[in-house]
Structures are given as C-alpha cells and as structure tokens.
Nucleic acid binder design. Sequence first.
RNA 1: GCUCCCAUCGUCUAGUGGUCUAGGACGUCGCCCUCUCACGGCGAAAACAGGGGUUCGAGUCCCCUUGGGAGUACCA
Length: 470
Amino acid sequence: MTIRTRFAPSPTGYLHVGGARTALFSWLHARKHGGRFVLRIEDTDIERSTIESVNAILEGMTWLGLEYDEGPIHQTERFGRYKEVIQQLLESGHAYRCYCTKEELEQMREEQMRRKEKPRYDGRCRTKREPREGVEPVIRFRNPVEGVVVVDDLVRGRVMFDNSELDDLIIARSDGTPTYNLTVVVDDLDMGITHVIRGDDHLNNTPRQINILKALGAQPPQYAHVPMILGDDGKRLSKRHGAVSVMQYREEGYLPEALLNYLVRLGWSCGDREIFALDEMIALFDIRDVNKSASTFNSEKLLWLNHQYIMNSEPEHVAHHLSYQMSKLDVDPTEGPALVEVVKAQRERTKTLAEMARNSLFFYRDFDGYEEKAARKNLKPEAVEPLTDMLQNFQALPDWSAKAIHRIVKETAELRGLKLGKVAQPLRVAVAGGPVSPPIDITLQLLGRERTLRRIERAIAWIEAQGANA
RNA sequence: GCUCCCAUCGUCUAGUGGUCUAGGACGUCGCCCUCUCACGGCGAAAACAGGGGUUCGAGUCCCCUUGGGAGUACCA
C-alpha cells in the first residue's frame, strides 16, 4: 500500500512556522516512503475562511518547496459528499437530530461547570424524534456510551480514552454545513490517507474521529501527533496567538532550506547532527523518532543556521535569493558587480540576505554621507597622503585585480611607515562610507576602478573641507 | 473543574538500567587569528523539577507531587 499523508490547514491566516513544521513532517514522511503528499484546505467554516489566507498558505508552501502531489482540495467543494455521509449515519442510527437551542446548551454548560463537572452535551435529544417549532436542528453523532477508544499513536504511543468522557458532537450545523470532526474523517477516508500527521492539539479529537470511522465501518489510519511549538513566552505558537508567518522569513532574508532545517530539528534529531540537506532529511527522518514534548522557537539558532546556509550553499543559489532583497532596495544588479561575486565577498559577514543587501548597497549606489564615528576616526588630515598615493597608483594600475590592489595598499603602508590598518581603514571608509566591508582588496576590485577613484577623490576633498571649516 | 499529553544546560537536543564525574548545537564569556566586520580555532560557565518506590545498580522503569501544554464551540 502506498503511503499517503496530508497537510490540512484551515485558511484563517497565513502559514505560520508551526503549521510549516507539521507540513514538513508530513511531506518528509511521504517522500521517505515514496508516497503521496496531499494538500487539503479545511474551509468548512465559511465565516472565518478567506481566499487571501488560501493564497498565503499556498505561497508559503511554494517558497518552502514543500510541493504537494494532489490538491489543493477544498472541503467546500465536497459538501455533497459530506451530506451523503451524514445521511448514511442518520439512517444507520449513528446520528440524530438535536433540537436544543444555543441558549439551552449554554445554560447546560453553565450548570455543569457550577457543579464542577466536565461541560458536555447530555444527550437529551438522543431518543426524541419530534421536531420543535422554529428550531432548525443540528445533527449529532451518537457516540458509544461504554468502552474505551485506543489510539496507537506513532509518536505518543498508546493513548486511551473512556467513551464515557466523550459526548455527542455536532457533525452538521443547523444550516446543514458539516463540521470539522466529520469532514476530516470523511476526507481522510476518501483520500486514502494512511498516516495522519498533525499537531497534538488534535489528540483529544482523535477518539471521536475513530468512533465516527467505526460507525462508517472503516479502518482508522495511523496517527502521529507532533508536539506544539511554543513562542519565546512559552505560550503556544499558532493561529490564535501571534505566530510568525513563514513569508516573513523570506522578507527578512532567510533561505527556505535554512528554515526547513531549523524546523526539522525542532522535535526531531539524529544524533549530534545539526545540518541536513533536504535529501538527507528525507533519508534520515522517521516519524517515530519525533519527540513528545513541546519546544520553544529560538530565533538565534535559526539565524545561525541561515548563516551556515549562506556560507555553504552554492553562491549562485544564494545570489538568486539575494536578488529579491536587492530589488526590494531598488537596486539594479547590472549597475555593479555580479551578485555571485558579492555573495562570495559577503557571505561570512552577513547572517541574512537582507543584511547582505544592505551592506552591499555601496557597490551599486553612491552613499549620502560617511558614518560619523568612522569618518571622525579615519578620515583625518593624516589620511590624505596615503589616500593620494593610492589614488595615483590605482590610476596607473594596469591590472585591476585584488592581488594588484592588495600590493599597492601594502606598499603604501610600508612607504609611509604605517601599519596596514592605518591605510586600509581610511580607504575602506572612503569607498564604503562606513567601517565595515569585505577585505579591502576584494572590496575595491568589486567596486571597480572608476567608482574607487571617484570615492577616494571625494574623501580627500571631504577631509580638506573639514580642515577648512575647523 | 474534568479528560488527555508533556518534563535533561537559558534554548534545541543526545541518552532506551551499569561505558553519565551526563555528550553535541545555538546563545553567553575568555583567549588566539586579523586591514574593519566577520569566518575560523581553542577553552570556560551552564541541566537530569521534587519526593517515594523497583533493582546489586536509575537521567533511563513504576507511583505521587509540582510545573507546563492541549481539549472541553453550531472553530479547525
């Protein structure tokens, strides 16, 4: 039997990191076993589902590279099928119409709470048949009253629930639309899902779903409830609390594979390994190795991982993602050095692509002014002579290469009896506007001769103007 | 409240009864390298929630306590 997994988000917001990890685990499980990964949109709550959210989720999946083999299937397109199943359940006596009003139910709950009981539907419409005037009924599933439901969870192990703890849940609203616990069962069944991998907030729903499955005469799939991801505050990170969007990481200059790598290590590990290429993840991942306990999202470690990927990925690949950041800054990469070269020069010193783009702006565009502190420290009168030396030598340099540039900087320092830093640093501030850049020879080479000469001239003029003002 | 789940450094984790004076990674702090910032190298501080059992022996098994999380909707 081929393995089939699914990711089934409800479109009530963007794709957040918790959802993305669940999707990743599902995807990994399917890929590992040569199975199929299905994307299903759980949009039965018409009130809260939006098309924008659907698009945001799709966009997130695409950016992460979690391609699905089937879907997206919208539950709203399957209402006919759900009606059919509800009718079947009604006919077999596994479901019944309930004419209780919301007010009655609310009152029931309050009384139960007051008596310190677990609030639950007491089944008062179980045997009643006659309709009530002016009340559109809901349809409830007739849950077994006795016995236990055993969930053999791939990550939790065996979990047991007493049927006496469960009540008769609503499977169709009074407007006829089906609810989650019904649709999820029908869909997983119809779509032949073999492994339901989802957040452990669904563990409590599982016995009800198994009961519905049994009423339908079907075999339950395998379940794997993965732990939640908590925010820095230790609170659950999910749709109802401020969870961070996957796409926000794109905006901040993260590589999708870095996010994926970070996410897979949250709740799963493989000895001491930290870095996993996608194919390694697929080979090594096993849903049974997933931890039971919730974990906290640690942005610092994600940042480190992103840096690792920036440093160790193919520069062409990094450059591709860098171009997105450049365009956000209105930079035309053809007006300066090739992005691949910028990546090679900057990758050790920038942890995100957004930072890389910002720090590389000076290669493409003249800066407005010097960073104050750096200028005060380096663009002083005594810098004029070495800068002038270099200006002349650079003009005469036959070969504009890092090696030749380096030689001139070094010779200038020696000639003037200065340490290399005393020459390189003023030069750096002159061409980059601030105290930080790649090695000075590489920086100048990438910047190009014309820009370099103009900026040195500009710096000399600036120093002299400062002197005149003083 | 009730039901279910969880519990190793600040964080992610290794650890499946003896090799644990508990290993790795992020972060933090030193030192080295150095034209800046970094990268890199070396080193340090840092954890088995508490209490009972079981056992010759427990981070590892059982129970209780405590703490955290989830569910308890005509949400998913």
